[in-house]
Design a protein around this nucleic acid. Structure first.
Lengths: 328, 328
DNA sequence: TGATCTCTGTCAATCGTTTGACAGAAAAAT
DNA sequence: ATTTTTCTGTCAAACGATTGACAGAGATCA
């Protein structure tokens, strides 16, 4: 049986109230009593029951983190950074993998509410804004405008789109494609596309788009890319909205005998450690994953500390960097 | 304010006890009353407070999952599968990223205990067996012998080592290296090495090992691999204990102008979807990630249902498959 | 000496449920 | 008409803590 507060009190020769006061640092307690209580706690290997504490009104110290897919290296690294921060601060993370499933995401939201989490970091984007607006708990959103009461943290996707496209222009490309799925407004990809489109306009180049949805299978994507490269032989530059697609493109190009970067230049987006370590040739836009995680967590803490406090800023766009590499 | 049990009772025109009985399906309740209660619950958007329920003695429906690194694609995919299962069964997952830190891992264990999780899936291996033995909660372990009371689920690493090595032998390799870190017994890598060593013995070939620790940085690893390939020009086959190292090796070989598979054949280990999708040339040993996750979860449920029930089996080794590809 | 401050303790209410004991009513079976 | 079964309800204790009110002790200060 796990020891409880009264066991500690008995061992320390004092009342349960005193033990609770030592734990919560509440009221007047002499150092001597404190020491005795701590000793008893150690001896019994006592830990307060967090359930009981939370029921009493204390925080649960639990944070829900909803991501679209943990197997996506970008989100894996983001989650790892978030978890590191949270655990340093004594928080627990309930991880929710929402995939492309809005029903599942809604269930997660209900579940997190029922579990009295202190707050939520929402990185998945399947639900209507309505679902989030009527949600009572502190939320911060990653990369997506949810509601006016919810602060957004994300990379400056527009800037990234400009940087990547400009790099291709500067490298002399004349037929530059954008590969991604910018159909939904408010999507990060949409802003990357806008950066691309504006840069094309400035350089007097035509906009070319090849749709590639996030949830398509890699082999389907690869087939589509092959089709594209084979039929449109004039392509000399591609800005991929994510690195994984860029890798597929590099592979397809190699198989078709297209030389990178001589005949085709490629820039990706995300710049995870995984990519930097295992695909070091790929030029890409690096998102500041650690900073993003830090900002998400920091803002969430602020919301938790005072949910009614008006937001200083609704949106926090962190700068990205171009990583110049062999594919450009 | 969130509605509580008594609010539902009031709305449904019955006592709190009755509402609780409807929720818990306990005692005699007429269909008419049930319907009234359900209607009231829906109308108020009521959800039982899980904290209060758990405090009362119900399960928390929370599972702790401890992994060494969520950014490792293998663990990312394993965690995704585990989470999928758990969430289908109404469980929540607290994710713990232990890195190489035994102090952190011990803290996690304490934290999970304090949070009354129903059970733990332990995939990290920094702690002494002692720490786990005196742990009161149901545990299952991934790939590591923790204590006699803890069932182990893992791939048949020995078989994998044999398969990979035999494939290299069959392909005509004469100087086959093992790259990995088999120093600790009980490590998965150790059994992969044993499979390799036994296969070498059977084929009358010499064992060659190049240490490569899990936690070394990829660039350090790459440098070591370059050194190895440059100095030992006779190497014609390598069995890498994980795919990520294999990828580095392929890259290093390419840079040195060593042709794969003509001059050097490579087999990896893990066979994640990521590798199969984005490095489809790599021959590797595929671990059945979905089955591993399913088995871990199933065994944990059994432990939770009856912790005192003796284990039918201490160890569950799932078969692996050789994925023959261009690098062999 | 009296007033103030510090320490320790008891008591009871509270958080939101669950559940056993018990009672009474209606419905069904004998 | 009587017994049994089914339904609904009240009451109270419990889960393991927190915390305000209150009281009394000893120490310190004026």
């Amino acid at each position: 049986m796990r020891p409880k507060l009264t066991d500690v009190a008995e061992k320390a020769g004092c009342s349960p109230t005193t033990v609770s006061r030592v734990i919560n640092n509440y009221g007047y307690i002499s150092q001597k009593t404190k020491d005795r209580v701590y000793a008893a706690m150690r001896e019994l290997n006592y830990q307060p029951n967090t359930l009981a504490r939370s029921l009493q009104g204390k925080q649960t110290k639990m944070i829900g983190v909803i991501v679209p897919s943990i197997t996506n290296p970008f989100f894996a690294e983001l989650v790892a950074k978030i978890e590191e921060q949270l655990s340093d601060d004594g928080y627990k993370m309930i991880l929710c993998n929402a995939e492309q499933d809005s029903i599942k995401e809604r269930q997660y939201l209900r579940m997190l509410e029922a579990n009295q989490v202190d707050g939520i970091i929402a990185g998945s984007h399947n639900l209507d804004i309505e679902d989030y607006r009527r949600f009572g708990l502190p939320i911060v959103s990653f990369d997506r405008d949810l509601a006016s009461s919810v602060p957004i943290v994300g990379s400056d996707n527009y800037q990234g789109g400009c940087l990547a496209s400009q790099a291709l222009v500067d490298a002399g490309c004349k037929h530059i494609y954008f590969i991604g799925n910018p159909n939904k407004t408010g999507n990060p990809t949409f802003y990357r596309f806008e950066g691309y489109a504006d840069t094309m306009a400035k350089a007097n180049l035509t906009v070319h788009t090849a749709r590639s949805a996030f949830y398509e299978s890699p082999s389907a994507k690869a087939a589509a890319l092959k089709e594209l490269l084979a039929s449109e032989r004039k392509i000399d530059g591609v800005f991929c909205s994510d690195d994984m697609t860029a890798i597929l493109l590099l592979r397809v190009a190699k198989n078709l005998g297209i030389k990178v970067p001589e005949e085709l230049k490629v820039v990706g987006f995300d710049g995870t450690q995984l990519i930097q370590n295992y695909e070091p040739d790929l030029a890409t836009i690096v998102q500041p994953i650690g900073d993003l995680a830090g900002m998400l967590v920091k803002l969430l803490y602020e919301r938790i500390a005072d949910p009614s406090k008006p937001l200083a800023q609704n949106s926090y766009l962190l700068p990205v960097k171009l990583l110049k590499n062999q594919t450009i």
